[in-house]
Design a protein around this nucleic acid. Structure first.
Lengths: 207, 207
DNA sequence: TAGATTGTTAATCGATTAACAATC
DNA sequence: TAGATTGTTAATCGATTAACAATC
């Protein structure tokens, strides 16, 4: 299987990773496709099908070993190591992101934090990273070979920050503002949009 | 078309809504399927197909009128009005959510905020909502007929808060913690998981 | 053994795309 | 008219699901 995964398979595998990580934290050692299905709303047959395309990871009548399945999926997604990201914006949202265990749990390291407020520059966030001035962004991003940028800035600044990140070599942007971003076609933008998801969820509740 | 939309169509329509809302804010009056495609990475043919299933909303050679398309999609999704949600957790993340224009822009109103910290209860957040004690959750959620709850609490408290919300009649949960939530089958859980999305995005960058 | 759960098949359904006539 | 973009067809591909033998 040296073929590239389809978008759907890659998305589902990373969701299994989340369930496995949390189940492991809760002390579980084995999990069945039905249990993963309950948490993800992905059909249990689909889950077994996704996994069996790469090998026979489970035991009939028993389920999947959490540790070994975690290792297998990380191998398939090639995301075993540590990944450095740059966070721009050290306001409430930026601080919440830096202080959350969600990134650290999956091997994602916030390697640099930027803000343009002189009162914040030089201080440290919960994660222990020191806040750098926005003007140092390009230098630090290049130095640390960072290819992922997280935008926790107001919509009015989002495009300027995106331009700076992209100009410094960043290829993946996580946009937490409502702004639409114009970027070159080789840059991927993921926009977090709880409101859009909510409208979508409401439709199925109302219908 | 009184049929229920498929999950895919409803998800895409709500993403078009986001692009239209922002384009309108930027002063645009018309938009083409190709422009929507550039921002969403959804194929332009797919967009025209989704829309034409409900009517002929565009003008050949010209594109779609933003105002009229917004109204049409809101009608299809039946989400024209105001929707009340309850926010639990008035820490940095909760404050960031309450202060963000993302919800308000789409007619979503944070009708109640809860926290268990006595130092916070009674104060008001940026949005203007007063923070209520967590013990009043059930009363207020029932009084205001709230069916959507947003969890901005640490993973260790997430299940307890989810139980309280579900027990008070909430049917849709937005979980910003990394915890897995056990809920009845008639309750929908949306978990925000930037780390999982990032692993997925990284795969396509590395491959 | 008895019960549980995987791995896999076969069938169906929806998503995706290219292409192009219609028409603004 | 010339250029642009919609609406729609037709064809392909991947996702989804039920069912069940294999086997732990």
């Amino acid at each position: 299987m040296s073929d590239r995964l389809t978008v759907g398979v890659a998305a589902r595998l990373s969701r299994y990773l989340q369930v496995l990580t949390q189940s492991k934290k809760m002390g579980k050692e084995r999990i069945s496709s039905q249990e993963i299905s309950d948490y993800t709303n992905i059909n249990a047959t689909q889950i077994r099908r996704d996994l069996s395309a790469f090998g026979k990871f489970g035991k009939r009548g028993v389920g999947y070993g959490i540790d070994s399945l975690l290792a297998e999926i990380r191998g398939i997604l090639r995301t075993q190591g540590q990944h450095n990201v740059a966070l721009v914006g050290a306001g409430r949202l930026g601080q919440a992101i830096a202080g959350s265990p969600i990134f650290a749990e999956h091997g994602i390291n916030i390697a640099a934090v930027f803000d343009n407020d002189p009162a914040k520059v030089g201080r440290s966030l919960d994660g222990g990273v020191e806040i750098s001035d926005f003007t140092r962004l390009s230098t630090l991003v290049r130095e640390k070979n960072i290819i992922v940028g997280v935008l926790a800035v107001p919509a009015t600044n989002a495009q300027v920050v995106a331009n700076e990140l992209v100009g410094s070599g960043v290829k993946i942007l996580f946009n937490y503002s409502e702004a639409l971003l114009d970027v070159p076609s080789d840059v991927a933008v993921h926009t977090s949009n709880p409101a859009v998801e909510l409208l979508h969820a409401l439709y199925f509740h109302l219908a």
